[in-house]
Design a protein around this nucleic acid. Structure first.
Length: 141
DNA sequence: GTTCTAACA
DNA sequence: TGTTAGCA
């Protein structure tokens, strides 16, 4: 289970940024970030004794999403709404991919992703791989 | 040098 | 929302 430890060591949850860094990476001013936080659109963590904000990866992504919609001339409130919906979808996508990912196996010169049992009786296993056009092909065995 | 809060020619 | 002031 060394793989698991390695994955956890680089888990995005471990990445935190200060307001200046987030501002530069997202092109959102510190003033805006503080305001958005005050309104509850984003959240920062304040270490027990540390007086400065730190944003985790999740909130960094949220800022990027809000900015993405603002740049398309949506109002702030609409951007927030759209960003929250996207966040939920991205989060669900992440959870599902993690849950179905059972490693890779080599077959016929291809690298197949083992997606676990396909049926409730746990007799058929689902595999998938990317073909040349970028689409996923499936295999059940 | 950076971040914080509060306030506004 | 930008900017500035005065701190920590």
């Amino acid at each position: 289970m060394e793989d698991k430890k390695f994955i956890e060591s680089l888990n995005e949850k471990n990445y935190i940024f200060r307001i200046g860094e987030v501002s530069k990476m997202t092109d959102v001013s510190p003033r805006q970030l503080r305001y958005w936080e005050q309104k509850g659109y984003i959240h920062s963590v304040r270490s027990e004794k540390m007086a400065t904000r730190v944003f985790d990866h999740k909130n960094f992504v949220m800022v990027k999403l809000i900015k993405f919609y603002l740049d398309q001339d949506y109002s702030l409130t609409v951007s927030i709404s759209k960003a929250r919906k996207r966040m939920a979808e991205v989060s669900l996508t992440h959870d599902m991919v993690i849950a179905m990912h059972h490693g890779f196996v080599e077959k016929d010169g291809k690298t197949l992703m083992d997606m676990g049992y396909f049926d409730d009786k746990k007799q058929k296993r689902l595999y998938g791989y990317l073909n040349d056009d970028g689409h996923v092909s499936y295999l059940v065995e």
